[in-house]
Structures are given as C-alpha cells and as structure tokens.
Design a protein around this nucleic acid. Structure first.
Length: 285
DNA sequence: CATTTCACCTGGTGGC
DNA sequence: TGCCACCAGGTGAAAT
C-alpha cells in the first residue's frame, strides 16, 4: 500500500487518535521478519512509555516516545535506556497500522498489538511481512532520519542536482530512496505522466526545464493524493479503516491497454527496474 | 562507486 | 471447482 501519501495519511490518523496515550502492554507475534530490533527488546522498551506524537519521514512512520517514566521500570533498566525513544514502523508492501477496540477480532497476520491506557489497541498487520518495526533509544541511538530528500519541499536546484550525471532511467532514479524519499511505483509513474517524460529516459539527460516540470508534477501529485487520503489499490486503509480515493485520479498506473485520459492512445505497460511501468507513448517523450 | 537483478512473502485474479 | 502462472504499494543484499 504505502508510498508517501499513504504513509502520511496513516501517520496523521494514528496521531489524531492515540497521541498522549500510555502504552500499557505489548504483544508481538513470532515471525522474525518484521523486527529490525528483537521483539523482546522492543516490548520491554515500549511498555510504560507515552506516545508523544506520530509523524512521517519518507515512507517511515515515526512514533516519538517519552522517557520511561515509571520509577520501577526505570530502576530495572540500564541507565542509558531510560530516556526518550522512537518506535519506527515501515509498512512494506501490505502493512497496516490500525487503532482498534480490544474486542475487535484480530486480523490474520497481526504481528504487533500495543494496548493503550484507555483500553484501545494499536495493531500492526502485514500479510507479506515486508514491513519493519524498529526501536531507537535516543540515549544510545541516533534519531531516525531518511537518507533521501523530501519531495514535497525540495527546491529546483537541489532536485536537478540529484540526477546530474546519472545514466539510469529516470523512473529508477525516482524510486531510489537515497535520492528522494517516499516516492514509489504509483507516484513515479503518475508524476512522469504529468511531466510528459518517458520513464525510460536517462536521468542525467533530462533538460533543466524537464526536471523542473517533474519536480512540480511530483509535488502536486503527492499533495493531491494526500488530500484524497492516498491511493487504495487493493486494500489500503488508514488507521480508522477508511479508504483513500486518489486511485480514481490515476492516469497511467495499472491502466495498461486503456485509453490515455488526455489523448486516447493506449497506455503502454513495460518492465523497468523490475517493476511494472505505465506510460502514454503519445504524451510522454 | 553506480547500477541491475533477485529474493524475500502472501494473496488475488484470470486463463484453461 | 481446481490448478497454475502471473501480478501486486518495497527494499536490501549480491552480482555485474
């Protein structure tokens, strides 16, 4: 499900619903995949902390946690583990972060349940297990930062510099999270369509004007999608279980063979960087 | 270093 | 109905 607009939508809705809640009890499933930090260690560090705020960085959801407030907990912890912390959730391909009432049935592939002070639960559900859960203790670990630049705020010169001298296809470059953070397959294809650029073009050979069209198109596609609550291609929902509707505005993504919304030519589907890639052969040069 | 390919997972869909 | 091939929002390790 999750590229920048979906992750932003989830982070906002989780923040709205659980900010200020204390984490009372933590349960983790037994699969090893979702845990960047060992689950026992995460559980120990999460319990007793307060959720101060939840926000998005790139495709990551960052939950800011208070210091371990409770005196008993604090004494049982090593001194360097008692300060503020971050719980970082990456949704992978199929991850969901949901706020549920405890008596709601637990969905298949639920890997984490955090019981909150008011009895509700924050649940992490992820069938394909490409998602990741990580804990950072800020006395000891660096706070989370994304490698790449934020596409919503990057300026023209910095954007152009990202691609200078690069021989790979512009679409592959857009997907590279160490250049730009948060762009995935949907918004790479959609932004290239709105900028009128073929996904196969070498990144370093785009003109200054094309790069600027791309930057502006990408920003507005992402902003419009956030406004729409993201794209629900199969089953993506936010923390309240609400679907997005930006998929209704998709011009090329998953529209292979269908007529272009602008010129009626058949949208083409190719494989690029191992991903399904969709473009209009007429509108994109 | 830059770039490409592939493995990691489950589930839904469409053809036969 | 069943079986199978193929496809799906991502990324990080290994190969080139």
């Amino acid at each position: 499900m999750p590229e920048l607009p979906e992750v932003e939508t989830v982070a906002r809705s989780v923040d709205r619903r659980v900010r200020g809640q204390r984490i009372v009890e933590v349960w983790f499933g037994s699969h090893r995949e979702p845990f960047k930090t060992p689950p026992a260690q995460q559980a120990r560090a999460l319990e007793g902390r307060e959720l101060l705020s939840i926000h998005r960085t790139g495709k990551h959801i960052v939950c800011e946690l208070s210091a371990a407030l409770d005196e008993g907990t604090r004494k049982s912890m090593r001194r360097e583990a008692a300060g503020a912390a971050q719980w970082i959730v990456h949704l992978g391909m199929t991850g969901r972060l949901l706020v549920s009432h405890p008596d709601n049935p637990v969905a298949a592939h639920t890997h984490a349940r955090l019981r909150l002070g008011d009895g509700r639960e924050l649940r992490f559900v992820d069938p394909r297990r490409f998602g990741r859960l990580e804990l950072r203790l800020l006395d000891r670990d660096e706070p989370f930062t994304a490698a790449g630049a934020e596409p919503l705020t990057i300026g023209a010169a910095e954007f152009a510099a990202l691609f200078r001298g690069r021989k790979l296809a512009i679409k592959a470059a857009l997907l590279n999270q160490s250049l730009l953070t948060g762009v995935g397959n949907i918004y790479a294809d959609e932004s290239l369509f709105h900028a009128g650029i073929r996904p196969t073009r070498a990144a370093g050979r785009l003109t200054r004007a094309e790069l600027e069209r791309l930057r502006v198109a990408l920003r507005s596609v992402l902003q419009n999608s956030i406004q729409a609550g993201g794209s629900s291609v199969s089953d993506y929902v936010d923390a309240d279980g609400v679907k997005g509707f930006y998929q209704l505005d998709h011009c090329v993504y998953l529209r292979g063979g269908q007529p272009c919304r602008s010129c009626q030519s058949a949208i083409r589907r190719i494989l690029l960087a191992g991903r399904g890639t969709h473009y209009c052969p007429q509108c994109q040069k």
